[in-house]
Design a protein around this nucleic acid. Structure first.
Lengths: 353, 353
DNA sequence: TTGTATGCGTTATCAG
DNA sequence: CTGATAACGCATACAA
């Protein structure tokens, strides 16, 4: 094998010349789209090896076929923010599977304009895009993508006309959980919610605040709870994390007089935090306090508890999005999907004493 | 704005014709590489808006420029496996920063061959690649990338000749932590390690097992501990998680007779698990047991403890890799970097009683 | 089965 | 400041 000349990488033309065949023939040897005699193939492959040719140039191939083999995943803000949600990773794994039939890769994009002021969304060679949690700026990203004529799928976000989206039955699922708790006899229930808006302030979720809320999932899940417990009290955390749940839990449970008998947390992480707050205060879960979560992701550090929760099909969410992308790329019409969460009985809720 | 014809997206040629200018002129209006009179620019922009032209086609531009604006991040196995390590996300954020000057995006690739048997590594239109945790199959990926003539940077992995790599002073950092503990008077110390190999079995780290270990970081950190505490006992966890630390901690601390006075965990997550195990058994940290971690990432759910640990420059790791990539792309010679961890005194270690 | 001819949509060079 | 022109490297329809 000859050394690779840094100056000029070998091209198909070089290989063809070396092998004494036409460029198209050499091309076909690599794409496999047409039969080629064994002898020719070998000659071509030998020439390729000799020249250090490792296959068609991806950029040239992309231009020619009109496909780059890359799907964009558009997340809000910093990566670390997006990955704070434990459902994100399984979702991405599902997405990877969903687009596996395309042999495509995932391009991680933030929805912020980059250095030069131009968003990578405008300049990235992608075949399609998946928007995750479409709110605020993401809405603008959608416009850009659409105007480029790219297939777009939205996961859990307000997409608008004619854009396939993957949604969760957040409201109904929250209601189911609430009914479970009601069936256990609880009447004094508080909801610990995700941040309702980008302000991310802790505290009571008032009417005003709810009216101005921008995070759909927060609103939906709370609405589900209140369909069972009208007017139920709700306090919001500043983020979805164990520590935030702990803070909310401490505030909630410290007041012995108005202490609820059950807490419905809008995420498993928050629920774990609440449980920990309860334990700190000497309350037993579920004997003294029932706690339910939401998401059904594997939470590290929960120890022996099994959280009562609604399991969301996180991986399925990604896979579905990927499949719709694949369909659109094949020219088929995509469909929106509404996925449902599944109730999981755990050890953290019990009949009221 | 005219409707976008699905049949044929407008091209620069269309815009130029509509605006009555040469293609090259229209091109410069978008690239800004040359002065253009205001009047011409406006005509071109107007024509573009009219035709629904949103800018140069990325694939064509890529081919022409020889740059796709995409950097590959090659991770081992499933995404969820890679993201189990809490240092991964800050690392990715750093990487994003590091390549910001390139205006490039990150393409997530697994190092497994895809559907058709051909790895995306061969066909993805990327300008460079960052390999994370180079072991086993990743080693083969390196070959592929190199033969394509792409710049490659390796983060925490065995890269081989002439490939710039970003490494951590795992051994020395572990030793520093051990010295801290020794200075506190502890003589009975156990190390809870990361998995030494892909078997991921829990249990005593024997001589044989250590000799057959494949995970460099595990070996290095243990070696650092043993440079201070020769022959110190070590038990391995099956993964880096709180729950695994809990399991290891229970096993370690249950035996009252041989109970160590200090535990050096190879990750913060493991350390938190050990602390929890101690608390379960009624041991106070740090009064009855000192526990130190490694990584210095923010661990959710740790409550009020501040872990004594070595803070690894996770974000810096990514940034450094990104910067080296940027350098190589600019034709400059890259350099390998050896980053050092910083000791952070917390509330989980104390002088021996 | 193999070769011929086009053009995918740009950008860079250079002349006007 | 603007325009003509030549690649960039390949994949396909079609002819042989």
């Amino acid at each position: 094998m000859a050394a690779v000349p840094e100056s000029h990488r070998a091209t198909l033309a070089d290989v063809a010349r070396e092998a004494g065949v036409a460029i198209s023939t050499a091309s076909v040897v690599f794409s496999g789209k047409t039969k080629v005699s064994d002898s020719t193939r070998e000659r071509v492959l030998a020439a390729a090896a000799d020249l250090g040719y490792t296959g068609p140039d991806p950029m040239a191939a992309s231009l020619r076929r009109g496909r780059s083999g890359i799907i964009a995943v558009v997340l809000e803000g910093q990566l670390r923010a997006a990955f704070l949600d434990p459902a994100t990773i399984p979702m991405m794994d599902g997405l990877t599977d969903g687009i596996a039939s395309l042999g495509a890769g995932l391009l991680l994009l933030r929805d912020e304009p980059g250095e030069g002021g131009v968003s990578p969304l405008t300049t990235a060679p992608v075949d399609a895009a998946v928007l995750v949690g479409c709110s605020g700026r993401t809405r603008a990203s959608l416009e850009v993508l659409r105007s480029r004529g790219l297939p777009v799928v939205v996961i859990e976000g307000d997409a608008g006309e004619g854009i396939p989206q993957i949604t969760l039955d957040n409201r109904e699922a929250a209601a189911e959980l609430a009914r479970h708790v009601r069936a256990l006899g609880h009447t004094d229930v508080v909801s610990v919610t995700l941040p309702p808006d980008s302000l991310r302030e802790r505290g009571e979720v008032t009417q005003e605040r709810l009216a101005a809320a921008t995070v759909e999932v927060t609103v939906d899940r709370l609405s589900g709870v209140r369909s069972v417990y009208p007017g139920a009290r709700a306090v919001s955390a500043a983020a979805s994390s164990i520590d935030e749940g702990l803070i909310a839990g401490r505030a909630l449970l410290a007041d012995e007089v108005n202490r609820p008998t059950a807490v419905l947390a809008q995420s498993d992480l928050l629920a774990v935090g609440v449980i920990r707050a309860a334990e700190e205060l000497g309350l037993r879960v579920p004997e003294d306090l029932s706690v339910a979560g939401f998401d059904g992701v594997r939470v590290d550090g929960i120890g022996d508890h099994v959280l009562t929760t609604m399991v969301q099909p996180a991986e399925e969410k990604g896979r579905a999005a990927g499949e719709q992308v694949a369909r659109m790329l094949r020219g088929e019409t995509p469909t929106s999907l509404h996925l449902t969460c599944r109730f999981r009985a755990g050890t953290t809720t019990a009949p009221i004493a």
